[in-house]
């Protein structure tokens, strides 16, 4: 437990909010050199460490910057200040099934999506059966994915992403989709992950599941880190602030 898997060091992320953002050359010329935007700091000086092999929960109300932080971890956004360092391979599950081509079959999409997520063809071939098995769509694997139900879509997408086999897995609120059986399977997969010494960072609005799955948690509010530590204590303070806040 001494090892640090992910280190978030004084990270701040700024967005530019344009008053009229119609992304046209005309508006750019009209603005001239004086650009009409406000800086909005979605993350303010956030620092914490995630120990290797832990399951780490991010909690906080809507718009508090959780997704933004995950996107910074996933190298989709780049923070203006501070650094994020991690060991090994990182994979992010921010939205399942992005990159599926509706006209292509499930099989073709597994290979395509796998390579978008950074797997080699050999890796995908090796894990193909496992992916299909986990997704539970064997019967339809040669059908175009546009004929899939949204649940099947999600299952297949999740099955691919989880088989990337990263050292650090970053998951946004995607667990809420899918039926109970599938959620059960996913939770089990996280437990396997943990046992294999891998790190999971997840966002969830369900405090029960955070309490159940996570050993550590961080609480974000309006882009600021309020508390980080053991999951139980962080959740307790968060819940308390909700009830206390109502009285203030």
């Amino acid at each position: 437990m001494s090892d640090i898997a992910v280190q978030v060091d004084h990270v701040s992320k700024k967005f530019r909010l344009y008053h009229e953002r119609n992304q046209s050359i005309k508006s750019a010329i009209m603005r001239g050199r004086r650009s009409v935007h406000e800086d909005f700091w979605a993350l303010k000086d956030v620092s914490f460490e995630v120990p290797t092999g832990s399951t780490f929960g991010l909690i906080g109300s809507n718009g508090s910057g959780k997704s933004t932080l995950l996107k910074c971890l996933a190298k989709i956004y780049y923070p203006e200040k501070g650094t994020i360092s991690y060991q090994g391979r990182i994979a992010a599950l921010l939205e399942v099934g992005s990159g599926f081509h509706p006209e292509l079959s499930g099989r073709e999409n597994v290979f395509l999506n796998g390579s978008i997520l950074g797997m080699s063809k050999k890796e995908v071939t090796g894990k193909f059966d496992e992916i299909v098995d986990f997704s539970g769509v064997e019967q339809f694997i040669d059908q175009p994915v546009k004929n899939y139900s949204s649940g099947m879509y999600v299952r297949l997408g999740f099955a691919i992403a989880i088989n990337v086999d990263p050292d650090v897995l970053v998951v946004d609120e995607v667990l809420s989709v899918g039926d109970a059986e599938f959620q059960e399977k996913c939770s089990q997969k996280f437990v396997d992950f943990k046992e294999a010494g891998k790190t999971v960072i997840l966002v969830s609005h369900s405090m029960e599941s955070v309490r159940e799955m996570c050993d550590h948690a961080a609480w974000l509010s309006h882009g600021e880190l309020i508390q980080v530590g053991k999951a139980d204590t962080t959740i307790a303070s968060y819940l308390e602030s909700l009830h206390g806040g109502a009285q203030l």
Binding site: H101, F111, L112, S115, I116, P144
Partner: peptide, 18 residues
Amino acid sequence: RELLANLTLREIRGQYKR
């Protein structure tokens, strides 16, 4: 480059499907 090849194939295969 493998991803590039796969995306190219996606375009080619998807193009005249059906």
